[in-house]
Amino acid sequence: MHKSDHITTGQYNRIFRRWIEKLDLDYTLYSTHSMRRIKAYLIYQKTKNLRVVQLLLGHKKLESTVRYLGIEVDDPL
């Protein structure tokens, strides 16, 4: 991969904003971070596997993943 193969955070956010606007959605209600969070939550809902979500998000502590997802876990971590 070359340095030119990467896009900046600003470029990514502009692409994302245009995509939301093309869908005729209010871009103020969506962000790249909210999409990351929703994707992680949906993966958890489907798999019920916190460890997988933790790895996908790059969290060091499982407790961070639980807090990030905004869920309650019956079993103590």
Rank of each mutant, 00 (worst) to 15 (best):
K61R: 15
K39I: 14
W19N: 05
L42M: 02
V66I: 12
M35A: 14
D24V: 06
F16N: 13
S34A: 10
L77Y: 09
I71F: 12
L77E: 07
K39Q: 08
L25R: 15
G10C: 04
I71V: 11
E63A: 08
G58Q: 03
K39N: 09
I43F: 11
R18Y: 13
D74C: 02
E63L: 02
R37I: 04
H2V: 10
G70E: 01
S31K: 03
M1V: 08
R36N: 09
Y41A: 02
T28S: 15
T28I: 01
N13C: 06
K61S: 14
Q11Y: 08
R67F: 13
T9S: 07
R37N: 10
K39S: 14
A40G: 07
L29C: 01
Y44H: 02
I38E: 15
V52D: 07
S4R: 02
R17L: 06
L23V: 01
A40V: 00
L55C: 00
D26M: 01
L56F: 08
I43P: 00
R36W: 01
S4P: 00
L57E: 09
N13K: 13
D26Q: 11
K48E: 10
G70D: 00
R51N: 09
V66P: 07
K61H: 14
D26T: 06
K22C: 01
I15G: 13
R36Q: 02
L42I: 01
K61I: 02
K48R: 10
M1C: 09
Y27L: 03
N13M: 07
L56T: 00
T28C: 04
L50M: 01
H2Y: 14
R14V: 15
V73C: 03
W19S: 12
F16I: 10
G58E: 09
K48D: 08
I71P: 13
D75T: 11
S34G: 06
Y30V: 09
T65N: 07
